[in-house]
């Protein structure tokens, strides 16, 4: 089932100071319920603009964005759109509003006028889903960056969204915080069937998803399963993107005439492929 449909969307900034290359120029895509879609592209490729179009923060100049069949330009229903598409931003510190974790998670629900008992139940469930129940009474500023992002995710989950939309949620975290947040997202996706749209610079994060879209100059230029996209090493490099290290290694070996099969994405797959090659040798 389709949860988001973007049809031939154009968006450009009216402010002349905004660089024109951040515009979105004729993007079409769909997100299926239960899917994890990763969007990659360098700064200024239009991917962050696209994100803001997906939950109605920006409205298309032409074309349309439908969230669960609601047009984001329908002013009457914009809050339905925002409830359906929960958003996580880059800087965890900018997303904390309360002085206690559970109050922070409850914030959105209180604004909706949800009854206190229901709030309590949802906050507990959301904190449990991100593994943060033991911090319910802690002060957010005492938490690590990874923990803060998990609290931010809990705040979104409490609103029971259909999609979690994340704009570089780990860019400001250290490697262990990054892993902690991505493991949490992966568990929500696999165990709870959460639909995930992830914007990231980190290719190893995009590898975890079901599908990857590459943005360049406001357009989608590549799309497919991670293995399909990341095996096109030359093309990704032309765009100025990284490839995962094992994919890069496979590419280099092939350039020297070694017949590496498939597209090894991680160390385990690379080990198996190299063992096969060694036996043949």
């Amino acid at each position: 089932m389709e949860i988001i449909r973007v049809s031939d969307v154009y968006y450009e900034y009216e402010n002349p100071d905004e660089p024109a290359d951040m515009a979105v120029k004729g993007v079409s895509l769909t997100v299926q319920k239960g899917e994890w879609l990763s969007i990659i592209g360098h700064n200024g490729s239009g991917k962050s603009t696209l994100v803001k179009l997906l939950n109605g923060l920006f409205l298309p100049k032409s074309g349309a964005v439908l969230v669960d069949n609601i047009d984001t330009r329908d002013e009457q229903r914009i809050w339905d759109v925002r409830q359906k598409v929960g958003m996580i931003f880059q800087n965890p510190d900018n997303q904390m509003v309360a002085t206690i974790v559970e109050e922070d998670v409850a914030f959105g629900l209180e604004n909706l006028g949800v009854p206190p008992q229901e709030i309590q139940r949802r906050v507990y469930q959301a904190l449990k889903a991100v593994g943060m129940t033991q911090y319910a009474a802690s002060a957010p500023h005492m938490l690590s960056g990874g923990q803060k992002q998990r609290v931010a995710i809990a705040g979104v989950l409490a609103m029971k969204p259909d999609v979690i939309l994340m704009d570089e949620p780990t860019a400001m975290l250290d490697p262990s915080g990054r892993r902690e947040v991505m493991d949490t997202v992966q568990r929500l996706h696999e165990e709870e069937g959460m639909t995930v749209v992830l914007i990231t610079h980190f290719m190893e994060e995009a590898l975890r998803g079901d599908r990857v879209i590459v943005m360049e100059k406001g357009q989608t230029v590549m799309e497919g399963e991670p293995a399909q996209v990341f095996s096109q090493v030359e093309r990704l490099k032309d765009i100025g993107l990284d490839v995962p290290p094992m994919t890069e290694l496979a590419h280099r070996l092939r350039a020297h005439g070694i017949d590496v099969h498939g597209a090894p994405m991680n160390v385990e797959e690379m080990v198996e492929e190299l063992c096969r090659l060694k036996q043949e040798n």
Binding site: R252, A255, H256, G257, N281
Partner: peptide, 29 residues
């Protein structure tokens, strides 16, 4: 897994060289 690799491989270049000498890739393809 029984590969006879040189010690201290920490960069992509080092790994590439080691595997090429082991698997016999062409130097310039």
């Amino acid at each position: 897994r029984g590969f006879d690799l040189p010690r201290h491989i920490h960069t992509m270049d080092e790994m590439e060289r080691a595997l090429l000498s082991l698997l016999g890739g062409k130097e310039h393809a």
